[in-house]
Simulated assay, not measured.
Amino acid sequence: MDSVKIDELDRLVIGALLAQPRATHAVIGQAVRSSEATVSRRLARLRRAGAVRVVGAIDSQISHRARSVFVRLRCAPGAADELALPLAQWDETGSVKVLTGSVDCVAEIAYTSNEHLYRLMMHELPRFDGVMATFSNQVIRRFSTPHGWNPGLLPDTVVAELRAERRDRWSEHPEPDEAAPLSELDEHLVAVLIDDGRISWQDLAARCGVTPSTARRRTETLMAQGVLRMRTVVEPEVLGLTVNAFVWLTINPTKIGLAGEILARHRSVVMIAATTGDRNLCGEIAVASDSALYEFLSETVGHLPGLIHADVAVALRTVKRAGMIDPDLRTTAGSRSGS
C-alpha cells in the first residue's frame, strides 16, 4: 500500500463506507456533511493509494461452500516471516498475519471437506521449513465479522441510517439448513463484485451481458439471502489504530454465547467467533495504543463471564487480508525469486 496520510474527513468517509460499502457519493456526502464532489475526490484518492477497497464476498457458511479454521503456527526463530508469504499464496487462505506472542503466525483457512482440511494440515503445512507446532480452531459460530465492523468514526445514529440502506447482511445470522443454489449468471455477478465491490450497476451489467435492472435484481437477491456480502477493507493502522492483536480465549461452555455477544458489541473488536480446539472464542481487535490494549484486556476481557484463560498476540505484519496479499510484499517476493 502506498504511503497515505488521511485527515478527519477521510476518516469520516471511510467510516461511512464501513457502514454501507456501496453507498453513493451523495449519500456519503450527506453522512459526513460534505459535498458529493469532495467525497468523490477523497474516495478516489484513498482507493488509488490502496488505503481502502470495497469487495464482495461469498459467505462460505451461508452458501455451504466452505468452512473456516484458524491455524496458529509456532515457528523456529526467523522462520515466520519466510513462511507467511507462501502460506498467503494458498487460494484457501483469506488472511495471514505475522505475530509476536505465544505463536508466530496466524491464518484463516477455508476448506471444503474434512479430506481437504486433512490434506492441508497433514501434508501441505508440514512442507514449510521452520514450523514447530500447529494449533487449529474451527469456526462454529460467528458473533461479528469485518462486514459489520464499526470502529466509531461516525455517530451511531448516522451508522444506523447507512446500514438501513444496505441490501446485504452486515450482522451475523445462523446459517440455514439448505443453501440457495447459484445460477451461472449469479456466479458471474459475484466474480465481478469480488474484484470491485463498488462497480456501478451499468458496468456490472455490461460485464455480465445483461440489463442493469437484471444485474441489480439478481445481485440484491443474493445479498438478501446472505450469500453475497459486501465489505470495506481497511487496515486499522490507516485509521490510527496502530495496535492490531488477536485474542484466543477459553470460556466456560455455558457462557460462550454471552461472552461472544459482549465482545461483538465492542468497538475495538473487528471479528469474534466461537471455535473448537484448545480455545473456544477467537477474535481480532484493533486499538490505538498499548495502553488501550491494556484497558481492553483488563476492563473488557478480564470481566467476561466464564473467562478461564486469555492469550494475546500482537500483529507485526499483515501479509494478506480479505483474500489480497499486500502488494508491497508481492513485489518484494518477486524480486527475491528473480535474483
Rank of each mutant, 00 (worst) to 15 (best):
R163L: 12
A164V: 09
A164M: 11
E165Y: 01
R166D: 01
D168K: 00
D168W: 03
W170M: 05
S171G: 06
E172M: 02
H173D: 01
H173V: 00
H173W: 07
H173P: 04
E175D: 09
P176N: 03
P176R: 07
A180T: 03
L182I: 01
L185M: 08
D186R: 03
D186Q: 04
D186W: 11
D186S: 07
D186I: 07
E187Q: 13
E187K: 11
H188A: 15
L189K: 00
L189F: 06
L189G: 02
V190T: 02
V190F: 04
A191W: 13
A191N: 08
V192W: 11
V192C: 10
V192E: 11
L193T: 04
D195K: 10
G197H: 06
R198W: 02
R198Q: 10
W201R: 02
D203F: 06
L204R: 00
L204K: 00
A205H: 04
A205L: 11
C208V: 13
C208Y: 13
C208E: 13
G209T: 07
T211G: 07
P212R: 01
P212N: 09
S213K: 09
T214I: 09
A215E: 08
L222V: 02
M223G: 00
A224M: 09
G226T: 01
V227P: 12
L228C: 06
R229D: 13
R231F: 08
R231L: 15
T232F: 02
T232M: 06
T232E: 08
V233Y: 03
V233E: 09
V233C: 05
V234C: 12
V234P: 14
P236Q: 03
E237Y: 10
E237T: 15
V238M: 12
V238F: 12
V238P: 12
L239V: 14
L239C: 12
G240T: 15
L241Q: 08
T242N: 09
V243G: 03
F246M: 04
V247K: 10
W248P: 05
W248S: 14
L249I: 04
T250M: 15
I251C: 09
N252W: 12
P253K: 13
T254M: 09
G257K: 12
L258D: 15
L258N: 14
G260N: 14
G260P: 15
E261F: 14
A264Y: 11
A264Q: 11
R267F: 10
S268R: 11
S268G: 15
S268Y: 09
